[in-house]
Amino acid sequence: MEIRKRVLRAEHPDTLTSTANLASTYRNQGRWKEAEELEVQVVETRKRVLRAEHPSMLASMASLASTFWNQGRWKEAEELEVQVMEMRKRVLGAEHPDTLTSIANLASTYRDQGRWKEAEELQAKELKICSRVLGAKHPSTLTSMNNLALTFKAQGRNDEAILLMEKCFQLQEQVLGPQHPYTISSLKALNKW
């Protein structure tokens, strides 16, 4: 990364990609402050050299939001997630997989703040779109189903949660296999409920 900065300059796309990759490595290691510092650099630089709605810019903003989320900095994460979601809807369309990921991320932020109705609304919308666009058995659809079931459970809506999680588990078993971590996680949730 340092060599690219020296040779190509800090604003070169390859340098920004290297910086973003290092930030991702830090985030995966739980080194939040180091990740955040680099992600802020990338976002600020990309704001100067790219248009606001460029896919790389949106990906950088989403990464920074994820770093905020992992630190429990919900308001900062939410602010960026809303921006990314709205821009992706406008640029890519409401049914694009990246837009759906943005919706899921924002719903997760709401859920982690105990904002159940807002989380449920987004999760139900995302699940409906995923089912229609990607198919009922697509892994992203199954993740959406799992998340909505967890939100139902958190609201004390046990019957709805169990029904949806049972359906999710059955499809995960078919699609991902019985030993897949997501399948096992869904089964553990059902057994606990």
Rank of each mutant, 00 (worst) to 15 (best):
Y110P: 03
L163A: 15
A149Q: 04
T143Y: 05
V91D: 03
I162T: 14
I103N: 01
G135W: 11
R88T: 07
Q113F: 11
S108T: 14
I129L: 07
R88F: 03
E118D: 14
E160F: 00
N147M: 06
D98H: 15
E86C: 09
V91E: 12
E120T: 05
E166T: 04
G93R: 10
I129H: 11
M165A: 08
Q155E: 10
L92N: 07
A161P: 03
Y110I: 01
L122P: 02
E126Y: 02
S108A: 12
D159W: 01
M85H: 04
L148I: 10
K117Y: 11
A161M: 02
G156A: 13
R157T: 08
L150V: 13
V133H: 10
D112W: 09
R157I: 04
L122F: 03
F152K: 02
Y110R: 05
A161E: 04
A104R: 01
E121Q: 13
T99P: 08
A136N: 06
Y110S: 05
D98G: 00
K137L: 13
A107Y: 09
G93I: 08
L127N: 03
G156N: 13
Q113R: 15
H138M: 11
E86L: 00
N146Q: 12
Q123T: 03
K117R: 14
L163P: 00
E121S: 10
W116H: 13
Q155N: 10
W116L: 08
T141Q: 13
A136G: 04
N158Q: 11
G114P: 08
E120Y: 05
E121C: 10
V84C: 06
V82M: 07
A154C: 11
H96S: 01
P97R: 04
Q155W: 07
Q155I: 03
G93Q: 10
E120M: 07
A94S: 14
D112M: 13
G93T: 11
L134C: 09
K153H: 14
A161H: 01
